[in-house]
Amino acid sequence: MALTHLNERGEANMVDVSEKIPSVRQAHAQAVIKMSAEAFDLLTQGKHKKGDVFAIARIAGIQAAKKCADLIPLCHPLMLSKVQVDFEIEQSNCSIKVLTMCKLTGQTGVEMEALTAASVAALTIYDMCKAVDKHMQIVDTKVLAKSGGKSGGWQLAQTDNEQES
């Protein structure tokens, strides 16, 4: 299997997508941030001293998706048509699941943009809540699904644990 991000001399190489047919492409990703009960309660009740953590994290995630090519060297700059950042509150384990979706009509996928949005939104929650809980963990960052392009759609299979929740 040939590596797509290396040229014939083994040097870093941005993939040429100019011959690909544009199609509607979409990707969904997630990141989970686990925290103490105290930090979780402040966050979910909107009583955090730094203000509306979810609003700031949502904006940070959207901005991050738009800046993905500036952060990850061989990513193509993309004209995103939609970036969505949502949060699922998971009371049972004091965690927040950051769920993102990126969409465009173009010649390359948007998985990295969705992952970047989820990661930066979770990092923003960490930054805004770290005064209350320095031991938060960001875990389970992954692509959940993608659609479009030559290879079509793909969805991550749920594990037994995920199906039970």
Rank of each mutant, 00 (worst) to 15 (best):
110 V>C: 11
115 L>C: 04
144 L>W: 08
85 V>G: 06
98 V>M: 06
99 L>F: 07
119 S>Q: 09
50 K>G: 07
127 D>I: 09
86 D>P: 04
107 Q>K: 15
75 C>I: 11
80 L>Y: 03
153 G>K: 14
117 A>D: 06
137 Q>V: 14
70 D>A: 04
132 V>F: 04
110 V>Y: 09
54 F>W: 10
60 A>P: 00
92 S>H: 06
61 G>I: 02
48 H>F: 07
101 M>F: 04
59 I>M: 04
142 K>D: 15
145 A>N: 08
151 S>Y: 11
104 L>F: 07
93 N>V: 14
51 G>S: 08
62 I>G: 00
140 D>A: 14
63 Q>W: 00
90 E>P: 05
121 A>S: 08
130 K>V: 10
132 V>L: 07
108 T>G: 14
123 L>P: 00
108 T>A: 14
54 F>P: 06
76 H>R: 08
49 K>R: 11
68 C>L: 05
83 V>H: 01
152 G>W: 15
153 G>L: 13
116 T>P: 01
78 L>F: 06
130 K>M: 05
106 G>A: 12
110 V>D: 07
77 P>Y: 04
153 G>M: 15
69 A>D: 09
115 L>Y: 02
76 H>I: 15
106 G>W: 10
62 I>H: 00
136 M>D: 08
50 K>V: 12
74 L>T: 14
95 S>Y: 06
135 H>W: 09
146 K>H: 12
47 K>T: 12
133 D>L: 05
74 L>A: 12
57 A>E: 05
127 D>P: 04
62 I>D: 00
71 L>V: 06
125 I>E: 06
118 A>E: 09
123 L>E: 03
45 Q>C: 10
98 V>Y: 01
146 K>C: 12
135 H>G: 08
73 P>M: 04
86 D>T: 14
74 L>D: 13
128 M>P: 04
106 G>R: 08
60 A>H: 00
117 A>P: 07
72 I>G: 01
72 I>T: 04
117 A>W: 03
110 V>G: 08
53 V>M: 09
127 D>R: 01
129 C>M: 14
94 C>W: 05
87 F>D: 07
79 M>Y: 09
152 G>E: 15
60 A>L: 00
74 L>Y: 11
94 C>A: 05
126 Y>W: 11
57 A>H: 01
143 V>I: 15
97 K>P: 06
115 L>A: 03
85 V>K: 01
81 S>M: 08
120 V>T: 07
66 K>G: 02
132 V>E: 07
139 V>E: 14
49 K>H: 10
106 G>T: 13
56 I>Y: 01
126 Y>N: 05
116 T>K: 01
90 E>C: 15
128 M>C: 08
99 L>C: 09
68 C>A: 09
138 I>T: 13
142 K>G: 14
52 D>A: 12
83 V>I: 15
98 V>T: 05
127 D>C: 06
82 K>P: 07
112 M>E: 06
89 I>M: 12
52 D>R: 11
141 T>C: 14
140 D>T: 14
131 A>S: 13
68 C>K: 01
128 M>W: 04
116 T>F: 02
137 Q>A: 15
55 A>L: 12
94 C>G: 03
47 K>I: 10
80 L>T: 09
77 P>E: 05
117 A>H: 05
66 K>Y: 02
151 S>D: 14
50 K>H: 10
72 I>P: 02
105 T>A: 09
107 Q>W: 12
75 C>Q: 05
92 S>T: 10
102 C>L: 05
